[in-house]
């Protein structure tokens, strides 16, 4: 039902929706890895998720994507998506070094 959820509004929240999904997956994987003893695979798995989240966010933060489209909402969406990229980059960074299960 494309008339219900209009594209620009989706675009406005898309970056942070991806951030949220990344957050949930990482938090869950951290807990599952400790509970079920993923051992040496635990951290690489988390880092893989980290990298996987950054790819679409980077793509969405490129300025060229909005050519031909103007208007306040697209500009706001671009900045919201860039904020999401920054948030993902920083918030998930600890998977590279912090203690996994203690």
């Amino acid at each position: 039902m494309s008339s219900i959820i209009e594209m620009p509004l989706v675009r406005l929240v898309a970056g942070f929706v991806i951030w949220s999904i990344g957050f949930v997956v990482l938090y869950a994987a951290q807990a599952l890895g400790c509970a079920y003893g993923w051992g040496d695979w635990h951290r690489p798995a988390l880092i893989a998720v980290y990298a996987a989240v950054l790819v679409p966010l980077t793509w969405m933060s490129l300025p060229g994507r909005n050519e031909g489209r103007s208007g306040a909402l697209f500009a706001a969406a671009l900045w919201a998506n860039r904020s999401a990229l920054l948030a993902a980059l920083l918030v998930f960074m600890p998977v590279t070094f912090a203690s996994l299960c203690s």
Binding site: L12, V13, F16, V17, W19, A80, S83, V91
Partner: peptide, 18 residues
């Protein structure tokens, strides 16, 4: 900064759930 504020409140809304 009308547009920046819209982006900021969207960011705030999502971050606040984290």
């Amino acid at each position: 900064g009308y547009r920046a504020i819209i982006a900021a409140i969207v960011a705030m809304a999502f971050l606040s759930f984290g």
